[in-house]
């Protein structure tokens, strides 16, 4: 078992774990965490692709590694937007849930 195989299997396991959490957790912030687990699993899969592509005196293929860095940045930006939405939802007095049927709490202020 080379490190790259271990990391690849780890990536697969993380994707599975994240998927499970994404489906099951009702709370959006927990969903977001689960989504981030999937994301890092995907980056690991990309990472072993980079590691396997070691050639020409390099220990990695720089192209996928560059893509991973871009991907991590984009994933973080996505988390930030999601967190902002979740916090705003709780600030306007809405129970933080993805269920569109839940009414606004009577004591909560409206956004407008």
């Amino acid at each position: 078992m080379t490190p790259s195989v271990i990391a690849g299997l780890l990536g697969a396991a993380l994707v599975g774990l994240g998927l499970y959490g994404l489906i099951l957790h009702p709370h959006p912030l927990r969903k977001l965490l689960a989504f981030n687990l999937i994301g890092s699993g995907v980056f690991l899969v990309f990472g072993i692709v980079a590691r396997r592509g070691a050639a020409a005196g390099l220990r990695f293929d720089p192209v996928p590694q560059a893509m991973i860095i871009t991907g991590i940045v984009v994933a973080f930006a996505a988390s930030a937007v999601a967190v902002a939405l979740i916090l705003r939802l709780s600030a306007v007095g809405r129970r933080v849930t993805l269920d569109p049927e839940v009414p606004t709490r009577p004591d909560g202020g409206d956004a407008k």
């Binding site: 990391a7 980056f43 990472g47 980079a50 590691r51 590694q65 940045v73």
Partner: peptide, 13 residues
Amino acid sequence: VWIRLYAPDVALT
């Protein structure tokens, strides 16, 4: 894990 994959740039990120 990233260090072990010889990806120090990714590890830093």
